[in-house]
Nucleic acid binder design. Sequence first.
DNA 1: TCTTAGCACTCGAAACATAAGAGTGCTAAC
DNA 2: GTTAGCACTCTTATGTTTCGAGTGCTAAGA
Lengths: 344, 344
Amino acid sequence: MRMDERKQKVLAAVIQDYILTGEPVGSRTIARRYNLGVSPATIRNEMADLEEMGLLEQPHTSAGRVPSDQGYRYYVDCLMPPAHLTPEEEEYVRRRYNQKMLEIEQVLAETTRLISEMTSYAAIALGPDQGRASLEEVQVLPIQITNKALLVAVTSTGVVEHRVLTIPAGVTPEDLNRISRVLNARLQGRALEDLRQMVLSDIYQELAQHRNLVNLVRDLLQQLLSLESGERVYRNGTLNILNQPEFKDLDRVREILSFLDQDEALRRIFMTTPSTGLTIRIGQENKIEGIDKCSVVTISYTVEGKIMGKVGLLGPTRMQYSRAISVLRCVADALSQTLEQLYR
Amino acid sequence: MRMDERKQKVLAAVIQDYILTGEPVGSRTIARRYNLGVSPATIRNEMADLEEMGLLEQPHTSAGRVPSDQGYRYYVDCLMPPAHLTPEEEEYVRRRYNQKMLEIEQVLAETTRLISEMTSYAAIALGPDQGRASLEEVQVLPIQITNKALLVAVTSTGVVEHRVLTIPAGVTPEDLNRISRVLNARLQGRALEDLRQMVLSDIYQELAQHRNLVNLVRDLLQQLLSLESGERVYRNGTLNILNQPEFKDLDRVREILSFLDQDEALRRIFMTTPSTGLTIRIGQENKIEGIDKCSVVTISYTVEGKIMGKVGLLGPTRMQYSRAISVLRCVADALSQTLEQLYR
DNA sequence: TCTTAGCACTCGAAACATAAGAGTGCTAAC
DNA sequence: GTTAGCACTCTTATGTTTCGAGTGCTAAGA
């Protein structure tokens, strides 16, 4: 069956109406609201064709039509009018990034907040891969008073992590200083995920000459290896799905919320997404159990042209795709610029 | 009306049965399952009395009885048999705290995880008041490569916070060292909430002699003032409420989940609780909008006899109170001990 | 050949009716 | 004071009816 222009118009009308109202839409409604210049009967014929093509579905015989995943897909690929944020909204996004934020974690947290606020869907984000990031600075700080020290590590992605260590009696601040120097000399510029395979025994040899440092150094290296080396995950507005009329079923809600609660699950969303540009996954296209009634839109953000991570949102398949896309485009843009500055 | 022994037995039976099954319980059930040696008719009379006393309620004429908030209250205060964890469970709790955890934040996160796991309710915790904690260490670290520095602050509660700073060109590591020394000398032992009222201008004067340090120092002091100074809030297992049959209503679920989502709301829960020992708030006793169908049990944890913060849980008024209490007691105990060691 | 008016048909949602069952309160007997 | 008996109440489940929205088909018209 061919997809002539009128079919396209009908399909677009059905989807737009359904996205707007959430109710199955009938031929009469289309004829009335969108003046295509033909009668309901004609539209009925077209809709029957579109159903046969797999683009529309009928919940039951006497209901209107509802878009199928494929229908949304066709709409998104071919029919959807391009949308832009208003200048005011673009300005608003820019302002939100103009706050003083000097750490990527803060920036990404703010990003998810912004996305969920502007779309009313659940916003998610994936931080840069810490494993590939290199160590930029390692310091062991003495802490007065207690028998503790602080291991601080800064990676090239600007993520700061710390670990508290117990130091054995007799270890002096000078010892710690020496340790810091050696660690920096040996580890600076090395990728976190390479640490595991590196010959840390060298360092161990060099530092553990003194008896009382043996335990400390072992502990320290162990802590270094335990630094989070995957991509960190951010989320915001997950409770927004409670406002979607299609999720009035408790079991489904539980399923989705539990899903969004797990870092690993969110990583899986991003993993199965091509690493570049904007991606839209509609319903079953998500090969992931539990969100097959949802759509996921993601976009990557970059620094100096290199992809650093991704941000995205999750909502019902009945999503305002054009809105979602324009928000994500704008936000990813502003985010990239912000990070660009951050790393300069 | 007097509360004789038989009434107590009937009330206890009704509540225990209701907690177990979640269904309104009738006189027949009580007579069958709990052998009080009297007939359903007698029990009916007692239940009518208990209803008149405000301890039981009837959803409708032909349903069984359901405990009222006051009924639970009487049960908790006077009837509930004391419960203890099994030795295995106590051992399990101890083992969970035997992991290497050197930071209070980690300990509290693990604590909420443990509580929600053991009770299937939502676990919440309140960290120590950072405002009253004193600064134990302030350091400004140079970071190689970039034009950034790292402000690290450690408070007496063992909380570590960091802030990234931009440093103007020309500032040397020695400058930063000097700044660290001065800050430490001036601020060590001061409470965070006193910083605001302190004459920071002294420090400003002392440090900002050099032109190029002016901005940095101003920035630095500002960051110090921005250190989180309230109590941090922890939560875990909030989605457990989706499993409670009494919360099958989406609106109620939304209300509670949104509530639990806000740090401020959680603080309010703890604030309205007397600062010592174990507290149980049943239903409307929570003077807080949105959780008036819930019960909250909290308990404080201490270090060297001083109250540091609180942990607790939130579930339906139909809660296994004795279980909740014994879990919280045991956990709070182990938590206190763990922190005790941490601070030694 | 395409379009459309007309109409019978389908199916779900809502309204209503009925029956079953659980539990109560009351009364009178023990 | 206790309890058996019984009428009564109210919810839940189930069935029935009605209503309306929307369809598919057919035949007439352009």
